[in-house]
Amino acid sequence: MSQSATRASSHGRRPPILERNLVKGRTNEVSLPAFAFLFCEMLSYATKKSSGIQDMEKKLSDFGYRVGIRFLELIVFRDRIGRRDTRLLNVLSFIHSTVWKTLFGKPADALEKGTDNEDEYMISDNEPNVTKFIAVPKDMSQLSCGAFIGGIVEAVLDGSGFPAKVSAHATASDQFPLRTTILMKFDKSVLLREKSFEPR
């Protein structure tokens, strides 16, 4: 009896996730330790199921893709009232600020254009929440756990109609040992379309 009583009271305080209002979701934060443990298990799973580091990053990125594609749907509904961005820079700043804020509670630290190639853009985060507690051992030093975030970004870009190849790189500095950079290499079609927007 006591069990049903507590369930009723907790039910009264906080309805199950499917009954909550989608729009009023911004204060629904997830505990970081809980997520850290989940991500920890995801990484262990990826390690067990993959043959090498590239394979593992691919798996992580796939996990991220599945999050991102659903997340885009939600965030467009919540923050953009169904409006869709058509320009490249708008989409990038949407990811840099809105997506990052909703996911991690802060905007990303840098949004840069690649110096060598026209079609490359980079988003950097000095201390990503996702990898906050993870120290990659020396024998796997090429592994970047930010591949998960990369997957999210790739899905958001794909879903917005800006297909791109996304990769994550650890760009540690002394000040920020966990700094991660997401490199986005856009498809040719995106740049062609972008050119056609420009006034002649």
């Binding site: 330790p33 991500f39 920890c40 990484l43 262990s44 507690f133 993870i134 120290a135 990659v136």
Partner: peptide, 20 residues
Amino acid sequence: ADYVMKNPFYNPEMPIRIEL
């Protein structure tokens, strides 16, 4: 709890060699 137990590369009960 933060940097050892939440690190997927750490094997429980083994020596801790984690830079962070």
